[in-house]
Design a protein around this nucleic acid. Sequence first.
DNA 1: TCAAATATGTTATATTATAACAAACGTTAT
DNA 2: ATAACGTTTGTTATAATATAACATATTTGA
Lengths: 132, 132
Amino acid sequence: MARAQTLSRNQQIVLDIIQKAKGPLKAYSILFNVQKKGIKAPQQIYRALDKLIGMGKIHKIESKNAFVACRSSDCEISKATAFSICESCEMVDEISDTKLSKYLSGFNHKKGMKFKRFNLEFFGICKKCKKD
Amino acid sequence: MARAQTLSRNQQIVLDIIQKAKGPLKAYSILFNVQKKGIKAPQQIYRALDKLIGMGKIHKIESKNAFVACRSSDCEISKATAFSICESCEMVDEISDTKLSKYLSGFNHKKGMKFKRFNLEFFGICKKCKKD
DNA sequence: TCAAATATGTTATATTATAACAAACGTTAT
DNA sequence: ATAACGTTTGTTATAATATAACATATTTGA
Ligand SMILES: [Zn+2]
Ligand SMILES: [Zn+2]
Ligand SMILES: [Zn+2]
Ligand SMILES: [Zn+2]
């Protein structure tokens, strides 16, 4: 069983650029940024992204088709993710709120479905954008 | 001010097919299904989808890039949406739980951002799929 | 050291979504 | 009525996002 504790070359390159970024990055923007490092095809990016998501190192912001580094130590397996998203500047902030997370993790569907995972996205205008 | 109480031709066609569907529909699958009615181009579908979303008649399931009819009378403006999604059969069910909705609508970000809207997606295996 | 699993490189293609422009239609005010 | 306005439609082209398929290389571990 390959419990990938260590990242492969491409995975590390992709993770680095996502972690350094100020905001969410799109797959093709990552691709353009790493072409100098020898990565040439979308597949290579998407494969790294998939693995990194699986490890909980990054998250996908579904409403934006973009990727952010995980800033919380809680969600190593990305089972319970929540984000705040500014509709003006595109800023994304990972929410780690224990109460919220517990509340949602304990939430059960009336129709008897047991949830394994959730993703929550809040939208609004961030403080910085409100000033303008 | 055009308060579209009434749907346009294409909007009605697209809404009809989404409402009749058993599960979420993708834009291009809608397109193929309405070509007999004279709709020929993706633009026509996406324009109708945008308007219908704006009216709260349908919702986009972000993690699937697919669209479902609104089954709840609560979310006329799609400000507070929650879904349960089966990872096996792709079934999507809109959750309308007043307590959940109130809890999330009242949730405020620590960093002072005021939320206008949220979307929540739960994932698991539905009852029907569990039996297999 | 050999087999299995994982990662890579590469080309091609599928899927999802928007841009741009022209024409038709439906209101409403004059 | 008719001009003016906003909205909807039709249409062609293209952009952006994501996966298929296959060959090779590298790592892991029995
Ligand atoms: Zn996280
Ligand atoms: Zn902002
Ligand atoms: Zn709804
Ligand atoms: Zn199911």
